[in-house]
Design a binder for these strands. Structure first.
Lengths: 170, 170
DNA sequence: TTCTTTAATAAGAACAATTCTTGATAAGGA
DNA sequence: TCCTTATCAAGAATTGTTCTTATTAAAGAA
């Protein structure tokens, strides 16, 4: 593979011909790194637009797809809501707050192989897992009022009701 | 509320005013019960149409929503694919086969409270969890050929390639 | 039974998130 | 510098799902 033996660093590296590093991709990635929330494509678009005013929504979608394909970013889906994106690559689950609509990362503290919990028939192989919870986030859970399940709202845009949801058997 | 004291059984029951039991709803529910697969709304529509030819797709969507809201059926989502539906109410995860596109139920054998695996900040409450895996199903895993991730195909419509996906740390 | 009230239905239009198409632009290598 | 090719902006197209409207049928009342 490496025809010569000289130690020039460029030669040692295996010609990584990955996606080009463009201004738009950098801006999209940095917008995701800047905050620990989970913006949708449109939200990313609005954030990036302040830095790269000429960017288009389609380009944001492209960048997000490229970043997700190369594993730098995770796409997070919940029911049929718009996809959200997440730059946290460490193992974690997602908590979707029924009250304020926010998404919180829940880090793993005791990794558990799938087959210790689930029955996996012979021949099954697992390459990826995704765990998501519905409930109330820490902020909403601190005010024990009560209300029906709210539609997705701007996170913590109001302080009012929530449902304490007494953890049923899962 | 009950003005009389007579003990007619109808009086003892707390007037369960649930959704009406219609031919369409019965047919949709039974179509889901009939097989352990995970059809999309369109697939349910096609199956039910053989029994109730006049049914419309919108009605299938309505029935599925009603059944899901009343907890008789589970809506199953994976990335941005069309929603699928599942009549299995016991606790299980879902395996999405990268090779044939099928969805398999993985029953729980050792239930595990979320907080034994994930770090839940103070105040967080969990009301529902959803676990899904990507990998290869038992049928596809039995033929150790190899290929790139396939787009959703009719399950087991071909016997060819798959990726044995050597379980990375999850 | 017949009437009344109200929910459910069929059909198709509308909607929203995403993807695709096109011609223009810019990166990186020859 | 020139060439090749990926990327971009803009907007059209696609697709799964929801909404709207007039019609039909279920369940309770008379």
């Amino acid at each position: 593979m490496s025809p010569s033996l000289d130690l020039a660093p460029s030669d040692a590296l295996p010609v990584k011909k990955g996606p080009r590093q463009t201004e738009q991709r950098k801006a999209v990635f940095e917008a995701l790194m800047a905050r620990a929330d989970h913006p949708s494509a449109v939200e990313v678009f609005l954030r990036v637009k302040t830095r790269v005013p000429s960017i288009s929504l389609a380009t944001v979608y492209n960048c997000l797809e490229t970043l997700a394909a190369s594993g730098q970013v995770r796409m997070v889906n919940h029911e049929r809501e718009p996809s959200r994106y997440c730059a946290n690559l460490s193992e974690h689950a997602h908590l979707f707050c029924s009250h304020c609509g926010s998404v919180t990362d829940l880090p793993v503290h005791t990794p558990m192989p799938p087959d210790q919990i689930w029955y996996l028939p012979e021949g099954v192989t697992i390459s990826q897992q995704e765990v998501s919870f519905r409930g109330t986030c820490a902020k909403c859970g601190q005010h024990p009022h009560s209300a029906a399940q709210a539609p997705p709202l701007p996170p913590h845009s109001r302080t009012a009701p929530l449902r304490p949801s007494p953890l049923p058997p899962i």
